[in-house]
Design a protein around this nucleic acid. Structure first.
Lengths: 333, 333
DNA sequence: ATATATTATGAATACGTATTCATAATCATA
DNA sequence: TATGATTATGAATACGTATTCATAATATAT
């Protein structure tokens, strides 16, 4: 029975070399004679040696770990986001510490965890970052990128869609098609995403002198969408278009609307945001706005790696446009 | 500007004590006078000190890290599983290294990653574990629990539903209701889950002398369910019941069946497995078999922690029963 | 052959913490 | 007050690795 964990010292002894030489083989980059290299690799194999990442990171001051903070991993949009982030970062040799923040705001405890593990960078999606929290990361010189969010104060990098512009286009499109009575089922009102989406939409309605506009607060879940739509539509039978803060809300809204007995899009139009896969399913065929997730993620990673490697890098903002995906949940003229 | 990372030494100097005393405060359990403790905490606060988890794990030989290996995080069942695992383990002071294995089988590289980080335990869901891989974990005395899977050979602990018994009950139920022509859209044929579900179902049909049974291989995705159902139903118009390897397949199958123009359950019955939330959505109202996810997860964690703390613990198998959830996707008599 | 450049290696050290061991300070007891 | 028990602290060390520095072995040029 071998020892619990073999060390480079064990390998060195078995191979008849020094610990330093073993390290050179596994750390790479240094010159080791072929003969010894072979011996060392054989010894390592025999002992089942694996370098200890903690000891290594202690000396190299690089952990190759990235923290990913999410809320609402059940939202298919974020499941997909997590998958893609993992695949990209894994290919780059980084490991993911996954944190699912159950609270609105990323908590002290969660920040501490990430700091203690010396993550090189943090990606924060869909969870609020207070300025004091941002400060802690900054103080430890840990790179932070907000994904699908931004905050004015924090001075962190962020990557997101131009929600304001997008919703302006969406509103214009919907008005153009003849809708006159609108409802908006929103996400939590403390996020940039929610606010911008509302702002753009509302502005266009005002421009066009449409005042028939109800706003229903929600929280970016199916259940929230369902419940909000149910209330809205039973109380306000004249609404002819429901714009949803995101797709998962839209699916809930669609189901609620249909349960009531109304048809989509004949009686009510529904518009989403994100373009998650489920929106394309025939049961929904949701018209929505696509966020270019892959590009957003690539951009996020680029900024993050850049900040990791250059601690003087200034915070960057990367804004994408996205585009409309027309399916069958909106009534055409 | 403070240094990049303050160390316990820095705190010690500022507080006018030794490094050892600082460590005692943060590691807990040791006796430190109130006076010095206060000074130390103040100094730590001032410097933004966080203990270094890597250095700590080096000396304590505990990393408090758990590896979670998944495939197919996009499947809502596993999104939910990940969320719950995270919440539970996080509350217990463990951190999650998330690995999304894109391949059928957990790869050498992924195992190495987990070994290098000295995770204390590994949870493997929905990804195959070869016996050589299992051996590596065993050799490093890393606790392994298979979730929703088992392998005969590996000798690892595992937690799963009694798929065999469940599908027997399901088949009996469906036959009872008058179905005579069956199809099964399965998952990958190399997993215990898939095999057991098929076995139980098939056995009952044989007992009842029902030979009209088609098997369509799939891979536990919506797309797979959609495509399989489409092929099945266009070629075999007489099929009156489709049993699906899991819920996400079932949703795809339902959509495909409806697109063809058939009604559910009037023309075709559909039965799922898992009881993911989406099955309850009115658009689907899927009759299915519920896996008691929370209990399964609690059981998994209990076994895992036990193996972590007692390296002599024998592999355990925990089998749940689950129960049928009747909605409206199956034709009643 | 000798001098010089190159390659290969080991000894020693540092990373930041927890812990053992020894000792100093404080307390309780007789 | 003297003695022993208890509490509080620091010095030293170990965890497993990467890396610097010095030196030995080898190759190359003159």
């Amino acid at each position: 029975m071998s020892k619990k964990h073999s060390t480079s010292q064990d390998v060195a002894e078995l191979a008849g070399v020094s610990q330093a030489t073993v390290s050179r083989v596994f750390a790479g980059g240094a010159i080791v004679s072929e003969k010894k290299k072979k011996k060392i690799l054989e010894a390592a194999e025999a002992l089942g040696y694996q370098p200890n990442a903690h000891a290594r990171s202690l000396i190299t001051r690089r952990t190759r770990m990235i923290g990913v903070v999410m809320r609402n991993i059940r939202n298919p949009f974020y499941s997909a986001v997590l998958e893609i982030f993992h695949n990209r970062l894994s290919a780059l040799g980084y490991h993911l510490i996954f944190i699912n923040s159950t609270n609105e705001e990323i908590q002290e405890k969660e920040i501490s965890q990430l700091l203690e593990y010396n993550v090189e960078g943090v990606i924060i999606t869909d969870a609020l970052l207070s300025s004091s929290a941002a400060l802690k990361f900054k103080r430890s010189e840990i790179a932070v990128v907000l994904f699908n969010r931004y905050t004015e104060q924090a001075g962190s990098s962020s990557v997101f869609c131009d929600n304001y512009l997008a919703t302006k286009q969406i509103a214009a499109y919907l008005v153009e098609l003849g809708h006159r009575s609108f409802a908006f089922i929103s996400g939590p009102s403390d996020t940039s995403t929610t606010l911008d989406r509302l702002k753009g939409f509302e502005e266009v309605l005002k421009e066009r002198n449409i005042t028939d506009f109800m706003i229903e607060p929600g929280n970016y879940t199916y259940e929230s969408g369902f419940k909000s739509a149910q209330e809205l539509m039973t109380k306000n039978k004249h609404i002819d278009c429901v714009f949803c803060g995101n797709d998962i809300i839209a699916l809930g809204a669609m189901d609620a609307i249909r349960v009531i007995g109304l048809r989509i899009p004949e009686d009510v139009s529904v518009f989403g945001f994100d373009n998650i896969r489920m929106g394309a399913w025939p049961s929904y065929s949701l018209t929505t706005w696509e966020q270019p997730v892959e590009e957003m993620i690539d951009g996020t990673i680029e900024i993050l790696l850049n900040e990791i490697n250059d601690s003087t890098a200034k915070p960057k903002t990367l804004m994408f446009k996205g585009h409309m995906v027309v399916r069958n949940s909106v009534k055409k003229k």
